[in-house]
């Protein structure tokens, strides 16, 4: 098995773990962590493609994109945490209410 295949498979597994995490918990904090895990999978996949086509040097474009992606993901997570904290202050809730529909 080649290196890039291992990376691709691992990233798909990490992505799936994160995705499953979002649906299997009602806790705000766990859901936010789950989205971070999804992001980890995606970034791993992205970075592993830098060693493409047996180039003599690493392709810099994926790194640039992953850095941008990380910045975006960190901001989104910070925003989500701020929302979760505010909800907890206002109502004391830490989980999503059960759907009534």
């Amino acid at each position: 098995m080649e290196t890039y295949q291992i990376y691709s498979l691992a990233s798909a597994v990490i992505f799936a773990v994160g995705l499953a995490g979002i649906f299997t918990t009602r806790l705000f904090f766990k859901k936010i962590i789950a989205t971070k895990i999804m992001g980890g999978g995606v970034f791993l996949c992205f970075v592993s493609f830098a060693e493409r086509d047996a180039l003599a040097f690493a392709d810099p474009v994926p790194h640039a994109m992953v850095i941008t992606g990380i910045v975006v993901a960190v901001s989104a997570a910070a925003f989500a945490l701020a929302l979760a904290r505010r909800i907890q202050q206002l109502t004391g809730q830490e989980t999503f209410p059960v759907e009534e529909e």
Binding site: T35, C45, P62, M65, A77, A80, L83, Q93, F96
Partner: peptide, 26 residues
């Protein structure tokens, strides 16, 4: 609460999209 649900859905959606972008670039 509705906003947090929206944000989590949006993050999950864009991570899915970004995964596809990575694969296409690769």
């Amino acid at each position: 609460i509705a906003g947090l649900r929206y944000l989590l859905a949006a993050i999950a959606g864009s991570m899915g999209y970004l995964f596809g972008v990575a694969l296409l670039y690769g």
